[in-house]
Amino acid sequence: MTSIKIIPKKEDTTIKNTNEKKENKTENKDIEQSNKIVLPGDILVESIDFLTGYGTYRDGKTIYSKILGILRKKEHVISIIPLSGPYSPKPNDFIIGEVAYVGYSNWKVNFGHPNDATLPMSGVPEFIENGADLSKYYKRGDLLFAPIDSVTKNMIIQITMKDKRARKLFGGKIISISSSKVPRVIGKDGTMIAQIKNKTGCVINVSQNGRIWIKGDNEPLATKTIKMVEKLSHKKGLTEIISKYLDEELKQMGIKTQKSEDTEKQ
C-alpha cells in the first residue's frame, strides 16, 4: 500500500475519507495519476505538503476540488483540468477577437468574454503618430489573432500585436468550440491539429478562447472534424479515430480533393 486513491469512489463520498484521515497522512506522497473525474467538493489531498493549483482550494489541511474536471499532479502542485466552463483569460494565450470599437488611442476587441480586450497604440509594431486616425490600421469588424499581454484582477485585459504570430485575419471562416476542449483540438505536441491541417490542406488558427479560424478548399470537412473532436474529446486514442475518419471522408470525396491538395502543395 504505497499508493492510494485520494478521490472518493462512487459508493462512498466524504464519510470514508474522514475516517481514513490518519492513514492518508503517511501515504499521500504518491498520488495516482488517474484520469478520474473529480467534482466540486471532492477531497483531493489531506496534507500541507501540496500547493493548490488551478481549480482547487484549501480549507485547513485539506485540498478540495473547486470545479468539474480531471485531476493532475505536477510535483507538489495539485490542479484540475476543467471539462467545461467559461474561458478565463491568461497572459500569453492567443485569442481571436473582433475589433468592436476604435478609440482615440486604443482599440477594443471583443473575444467572447464579458470584458472586451484593449489593444493600446503601443501594442502595434508600426509607429503611430499622436492623433492619427486609428481606423487606418485596424477598423471596426477586423479580426485579430493576438496574444494576451496582461490581465488584471478586475479583468482589464490587454492584448498586443507585437508578436511574430499575431496578425489580422483575412477571409476564411470562424467556428467556435468550448474553450475547455481547445487542448484536445490541438492535441499532444500539436499532433491533432497538424494532422487536420495536413489532410484537409486548410490553414487553421486555434485560439485559446475557443474560436478557430479556417481557410482553405476543404473548409467544411475541417469544420466537421473539429466539431467531432469537440464531441468525442473525452475518448482515448482520439488522434487515431480522427485520422481514420479523415481518410475515409477524403476517399469518399474522391479524386477532387486529392487534386486540390496537390495544387496547394505546389
Binding site: L39, P40, G41, G55, Y57, Y64, K66, I67, L68, G69, P82, L83, S84, G85, P86, S180
Partner: peptide, 11 residues
C-alpha cells in the same frame, strides 16, 4: 452549475 464549470466549494 457544476456542469457549467462554475467553481464551487461543493455540491
Amino acid at each position: 452549475l457544476a456542469h457549467a464549470g462554475i467553481p464551487m466549494k461543493g455540491l
